[in-house]
């Protein structure tokens, strides 16, 4: 028997044990992350579930915790998201198309690329400062739904651009060449092929961007929209001509995360149940949007085979 064979076996055994231990540790870390997510959810549910009655969605905020609701907050969130999507979707998709399909290899493209990368890393509160200085005071848009929507639109622009680019890049070059080979112009190739085939991927990005925007608080506080709002903005649609109006854009507003923040900062614990209930609504909303995005991505992968 070679000297050391026994030692070697002991060594190998020890290493195998290390493997098993580490695997346990890794699984524990994973479970811990999942557990924290669950704890967060359960904590909110315990505190806030009792408040999630229909009235909660139909009442304005109030000085009495038991009567306060999130009517103005969720309506505000919906309207702000409308503006955000209307701003970020066309601009982001167009910028993504330009970068993937049109951009020449030159300094201008580099500058745009660097800016998109950089914007993705800018903290959200900086967008709030930009909006405060530029939109609120320079352009005098006030602390309005329009300002908030544009602010969040700028914030999620990099998300939309990046996901548009990824979706477009997944369209095989052979498909583009087939269309070009038939005499399609660049814009026709983009409009007839590249865009339709990457819609699901682009939508995924837009939904993820919006789910981030709907829970975003800091930039909205920064533009100064932390006020007591117990009314609804003018309705965007009406029964009398001209049926659609845009007065709501310049209306003061509140949104769900702001309402929640507002309730957290009250010392009265009764308000904290309200905060938990609003948080529950927010978490369910974002989880739902994320799940939708994941499902869309999965479906897109399954549907189109190249």
């Amino acid at each position: 028997m070679e000297p050391g064979t026994h030692d070697l076996r002991v060594l190998i055994g020890r290493q195998r044990l290390c493997d098993v231990l580490f695997e346990g540790l890794g699984a524990f870390m994973l479970l811990m992350s999942l557990f924290i997510l669950a704890a967060l959810f359960i904590n909110l549910a315990i505190e806030g579930l009792a408040r999630l009655q229909p009235d909660f969605f139909l009442d304005f905020p109030s000085r009495r915790a038991g009567q306060a609701g999130i009517l103005s907050a969720w309506v505000g969130s919906v309207l702000v998201m409308l503006v955000t999507a209307a701003a970020a979707l066309p601009v982001g998709v167009a910028a993504g198309i330009w970068l993937e399909e049109y951009a020449p290899k030159n300094w201008l493209t580099d500058v745009v690329e660097i800016n998109v990368t950089n914007l993705a890393g800018v903290p959200s509160i900086i967008y709030g400062l930009l909006a405060l200085g530029l939109l609120v005071h320079q352009f005098r848009l006030g602390e309005s739904i329009l300002t908030a929507g544009l602010t969040l639109g700028m914030m999620i622009l990099p998300v939309v651009i990046v996901s548009t680019r990824e979706a477009i890049r997944a369209v095989p070059q052979t498909i583009r060449e087939a269309a070009y080979g038939l005499g399609a112009s660049r814009w026709r190739v983009t409009r007839d092929h590249v865009l339709p085939y990457s819609v699901a991927g682009i939508l995924t990005g837009v939904i993820i961007g919006l789910s981030r925007a709907i829970g975003e608080t800091a930039p909205i506080i920064t533009i100064g929209a932390l006020t007591f709002i117990a009314f609804l903005p003018p309705a965007p649609v009406s029964a009398v001509p001209p049926f659609i109006n845009f007065e709501w854009l310049s209306s003061p507003f509140t949104v769900l995360p702001i309402q929640m923040f507002n309730w957290i900062s009250r010392p009265d614990p009764a308000f904290q149940s309200n905060a938990a209930a609003a948080g529950l609504v927010l978490v369910i909303l974002t989880l739902f949007m994320n799940a939708m995005a994941i499902w869309l991505r999965y479906r897109a992968r399954k549907r189109i085979k190249w």
Binding site: E177, I304, W306
Partner: peptide
């Protein structure tokens, strides 16, 4: 001047 490619590349 039309072209037929190496791998069949029908549009989806």
């Amino acid at each position: 001047i039309g072209m037929v490619f190496q791998k069949p590349n029908p549009f989806p």
